[in-house]
């Protein structure tokens, strides 16, 4: 819809690398990760604590604060791709 320009500024692959490093998932190769796999229940099998860790890493690296009271959180945290899209959208809205 709106993403071709911003997607290059912040790619889901880059986020995958950040997540693998941030969560110390040493047994995963960020280049091989399925970006559309669900983050929870199957897929990457992350939990709520991992979400906090990821949020802190994203905040530190990109200055984007993920909010607990965002009504779209379910969609935002669906996959690495959706999370990257969200961060990219926030960054581009900031200009």
């Amino acid at each position: 819809m709106m993403l071709p320009a911003t997607a290059s500024a912040f790619s889901a692959r880059e986020l995958a690398t950040l997540v693998v490093e941030g969560l110390h998932l040493e047994d995963l190769d960020p280049q091989q990760l399925d970006l559309t796999a669900p983050l929870f229940d199957g897929g990457l099998n992350l939990d709520s604590l991992d979400v906090l860790e990821i949020s802190l890493v994203i905040q530190q690296r990109y200055g984007v604060k993920l909010k607990a009271d965002d009504p779209n959180n379910k969609a935002i945290f669906a996959s690495l791709q959706s999370l990257a899209d969200h961060v990219a959208a926030v960054l581009s809205a900031r200009g």
Binding site: F40, S48, V51, L52, A68, D69, D70, F77
Partner: peptide
Amino acid sequence: PLGQPDSFLRAYD
């Protein structure tokens, strides 16, 4: 509520 993706994020906030 525990068991939601943003449970701990909420607590942190």
